[in-house]
Design a binder for these strands. Structure first.
Lengths: 230, 230
DNA sequence: AATTTTTGCGTAAAATAAACACATAAAATT
DNA sequence: AATTTTATGTGTTTATTTTACGCAAAAATT
């Protein structure tokens, strides 16, 4: 039995971060889950997560876990809720600061963790450990809200993408269907897309144009006070 | 020196909740601050807050503090961000789960706390303890976002209110001016207001109609999938 | 070779938002 | 007391945005 050497005058809860890592394979939204190797809930699938170290912020902690699983250093990581039910963990009082991350599936390499990790579609999520199903539900709800007002969708696509790909992403997240031509017009009119390649003269109409997200232009427009609104 | 009797195998941060309590006096948005009676930052103004107990959730903790300051039991309290900078508190590692609360100023009675508490307008906030200025800024930003899509504004008004009062509230929070007649039309067309009193026949036009928020109607409309959009 | 699908680029209609006009009576001013 | 100003309810007109849908051409399918 290891010594309990960190002592306080008042009880302290343990603090963890969990990370809902979203990806997009061109058809549906995926979430990365890991299979727990230890009790409690040994063998069950869970969100990647771990204990907060005393010299790191919650976001740094979440990024560390993200990197352990995907080898990705720089991606969108955002805190969205802290879960504090008193009986979340049978061992001791544990509160968790939940984050979501958006990654490009093509850039993900296997994690260095021995633990088994797997991508799941949102409609085939297995039974999850702790209150992770609740965390996941809130994460997807937040993703839906955010994508309507911030251009976070581009974090899930390759740098260069086509309009149908972008539409598929929006439809997958929001679970709706858009009219192809209206989506096209609206997106272009926003002015935040740049044509990635010059279109050949003998342009085949069947081959879609390639775009990239114009972050500079978006920043400029945002300062003028415009909102995405989808 | 009191005994440090709560011991763990790994270091644990202390966890607090802070609460940004918003009120509206008919003209501007107010925030309740308390003057710290102890070090660190003794004498400085701060957000009401305190340590999370082991048998309560973060929301319960925030409500407890709200009640201590305002005697209000049932109001909107919502978590919006957890602040985790490593050097927030000079004593030890403290993370705080920040909430905002919306209260009707008319219903607020003095707190039972000995500490001095005072309402401040957003444009005359004094220097605050810890990182509470950052917390307050994020709270007001969140309030702005939320009021555009959820009818939380009514929590700040008396149960019965007039259209000019409602408009003043929206203008105070969003820091914009609306055309009186368009605001009026838009609000009525939403269908979430009920006339509170029958208007006398010899209705003076100068005396505004009185309304109340129709929560049932709002719930019904929301289920059909409509958004406020302001 | 014919048919279907997919894309770029439109346009007409419908719905929504923005701008503003006017009557009335209370309140303020003279 | 008469006059002016202000605040409110109720519109209408115009501009803008959203929605619905048409069409041609090349690629893919049959």
């Amino acid at each position: 039995m290891e010594e309990k050497k960190y002592c306080y005058r008042y009880p302290h809860p343990a603090v963890t971060t969990d990370c809902v890592i979203f990806g997009f394979d061109g058809v549906s939204i995926k979430v990365l889950l890991v299979q727990r190797g230890i009790d409690p809930h040994k063998g069950k699938w869970a969100l990647p997560g771990g204990f907060l170290k005393m010299d790191e912020t919650a976001e740094e902690c979440a990024r560390r876990e993200l990197c352990e699983e995907t080898r990705l250093q720089s991606t969108t990581v955002e805190q969205f809720h802290t879960f504090t039910s008193v009986d979340r963990d049978p061992r001791e009082r544990v509160i968790t600061i939940a984050h979501y991350a958006l990654v490009r599936l093509s850039e993900v390499r296997g994690g260095d963790d021995a633990a088994k990790a797997e991508w799941f579609s949102l409609d085939e999520i297995p039974c999850l450990a702790f209150d992770h199903d609740r965390i996941l539900r809130m994460a997807t709800a937040r993703l839906k809200e955010r994508i309507c007002f911030e251009p976070i969708g581009f974090e899930l696509l390759p740098e260069i993408f086509t309009m149908p790909e972008l539409q598929n992403l929006y439809e997958a997240i929001l679970e709706v269907k858009f009219d192809r031509r209206n989506f096209y017009n609206k997106m272009l009119k926003l002015g935040i897309l740049t044509e990635a390649e010059e279109r050949p003269k003998n342009a085949s109409r069947r081959i879609p144009c390639k775009y990239r997200f114009n972050a500079a232009k978006y920043k400029e427009l945002k300062q003028k006070g415009f909102r995405l609104e989808f």
